[in-house]
């Protein structure tokens, strides 16, 4: 039982990260119907920008840790959001009216470009976040362990997701995003500037991805230029699992994916863990073809 709860906790904290990355996928997909394969690499860039701020700029020397964190979070989000907007302008906008799969290839190209750019700028070696930024204490409750950093990261993810949810559901901009997601032309008819909405999405999605990168850096300490690929694939899986294009779905999908992974390692086999995850995904999709929270696509009549 203790083991089970500990594994549940492990899965939950991993799932929080997946969910945060999955949000970026799902938002972009919602409005453009494009799988942004470069999203994982924007996540990597977030982690590296955080590293630069900590190590080269030495941000913690001048301000106290909490303020430093906020500044770092803001800078990383701003930087990655700028890249995201640039990416959309350069690589996706020219292809908006082309066959969908062409944009997917453009996204793959951008992913290769970003990954190798990071390698050329920072070198191929692993980089390590300085230790001891946070207190290293671990919460232990009834024999379960949860490092404080994880609690912190999980809380930040939750807050960000809640904010995003209210932004999409309750604000006018959010309504515009939802409208564009349903139909570009109809949205244009009611006076929504579609290009602007797409730009907003490419600010928010990549910013969240960059933030997730920073979190992973703080949480696990070790970053490398290829890390975005694996996280990207996992987050994409999470987004599909929850129903792509659906924001609560991405959160739910991320958490469920994290839990499936830790349970599969615990009770089946570690080596087969990822295979088990995909089997579960396929089973869920055979029962619910559009993911857990995905709406049934209206069929043309």
């Amino acid at each position: 039982m203790e083991n089970f709860l500990q594994q549940l906790l492990n899965g939950l904290s991993l799932g929080g990260i997946y969910a945060l990355i999955a949000l970026g996928y799902t938002m972009v997909y919602g409005v453009l119907k494009l799988i942004n394969f470069a999203h994982g690499d924007l996540f990597t860039i977030g982690a590296y920008v955080g590293f630069t701020l900590l190590v080269s700029v030495g941000i913690t020397d001048s301000v106290d840790p909490m303020a430093a964190l906020i500044i770092m979070g803001a800078t990383v989000m701003l930087f990655v959001a700028t890249l995201g907007v640039g990416l959309e302008r350069a690589a996706y906008r020219p292809l908006r009216h082309s066959p969908r799969l062409s944009a997917v290839v453009s996204a793959l190209g951008a992913s290769i470009f970003f990954q190798n750019a990071v390698m050329l700028i920072y070198g191929a070696r692993f980089h390590v976040y300085p230790q001891g930024l946070f207190t290293k204490s671990t919460l232990s409750l009834f024999g379960l362990y949860l490092p404080l950093v994880k609690v912190f990261v999980l809380m930040v993810s939750l807050v960000v997701m809640t904010l995003l949810y209210f932004f999409i559901q309750k604000t006018l901009t959010g309504a515009a995003i939802r409208a564009v997601a349903i139909d570009h032309n109809a949205a244009r008819l009611v006076g929504i500037n579609v290009d602007k909405v797409v730009t907003i999405v490419f600010v928010v999605g990549p910013a969240l991805g960059g933030l997730a990168g920073l979190m992973v850096g703080l949480l696990y300490g070790q970053i490398t230029f290829t890390m975005g690929w694996l996280y990207g694939l996992k987050a994409f899986t999470a987004a599909i699992l929850g129903g792509i294009g659906n924001i609560p779905g991405a959160m739910l999908g991320g958490i469920i994916l994290g839990i499936i992974e830790s349970m599969a390692s615990a009770y089946l086999s570690i080596a087969w863990k990822d295979a088990v995850t995909f089997v579960v995904l396929i089973l869920i999709l055979t029962i619910r073809p559009t993911g857990i929270l995905g709406e049934r696509i209206a069929e043309k009549v």
Partner: peptide
């Protein structure tokens, strides 16, 4: 006797299992 997946970053699930 088991194998982890290289390139990941969260190995807590594996460690919990190892510990048991």
């Amino acid at each position: 006797f088991d194998a982890l997946t290289p390139g990941e970053q969260d190995y807590t699930a594996i460690l919990t299992k190892l510990k048991s």
